[in-house]
């Protein structure tokens, strides 16, 4: 069930009532707390996934996620509509995550928590695929947070490089360069194990 919730979102998100994220934000502006809850539940899977890739520490992920959503509640008018709401939210989350990471000593990184990335084989797959996933997860963990962000936003969230540049507040060429490095690193670490993946 959780895996279903974390599947890539390829279109503008809508909640169960068919409201778009912008519909919900309009209600949040008017102080509607139930709309805020729906917006939170709508974005929680994607933001959690993104922050987990960046931070890899459960407590900090929760803190940054809540800090991000509190910006939506307290300052909804700071979204001017120049970008998609998701771009704005990811940008806030990224800034807060990087700030949170700088505050914490890298040495205390929660190595055990990385195991939460599910390496277990699903009912229909072989243990070799689970091993590949673990290998990949470990290889991603070796990248810098900024490189991890580009990988996750591209491969999992299906964002274009221009939108990623907006989120990370960097030139588009930097996004391309980070992705180039990251791909090279991941493929080097994985060797030929992905040959039969699809």
């Amino acid at each position: 069930m959780v895996e279903e919730a974390l599947m890539p979102v390829r279109s503008a998100p809508e909640d169960t009532k068919g409201e778009s994220d912008l519909d919900l934000l309009a209600k949040v502006r008017a102080g509607d707390r139930t709309a805020f809850e729906r917006l939170y539940l709508l974005y929680h899977p994607r933001l959690t996934r993104f922050l987990w890739t960046l931070i890899r520490r459960p407590a900090l992920v929760e803190e940054v996620l809540d800090d991000t959503m509190m910006v939506v509640w307290n300052r909804p008018d700071s979204f001017h509509g120049a970008s998609k709401l998701s771009t704005w939210l990811f940008a806030i989350a990224y800034r807060k995550a990087m700030r949170g990471l700088r505050k914490q000593d890298e040495a205390v990184e929660d190595r055990e928590a990385e195991r939460r990335v599910s390496p277990e084989a699903g009912p229909d797959e072989s243990s070799s695929r689970a091993r590949v996933r673990q290998l990949l997860s470990d290889a991603i963990a070796e990248l810098s947070p900024a490189h991890r962000a580009v990988v996750d936003l591209t491969y999992f969230h299906d964002l274009g490089y221009r939108e990623i540049a907006l989120i990370l507040e960097c030139p588009v060429d930097t996004v391309k360069t980070r992705m180039f490095h990251a791909r090279r690193h991941l493929r080097k670490k994985l060797g030929g194990v992905l040959t039969d993946w699809i």
């Binding site: 939460r116 990335v117 991941l186």
Partner: peptide, 23 residues
């Protein structure tokens, strides 16, 4: 190779549920 890598990254999930009560 790019398609294989993208598919593998997408297959990584994590245990996560919203905690509205906390917020």
């Amino acid at each position: 190779a790019e398609r294989q890598l993208a598919a593998a990254v997408q297959s990584i999930s994590l245990d996560s549920e919203g905690d509205w009560e906390r917020l």
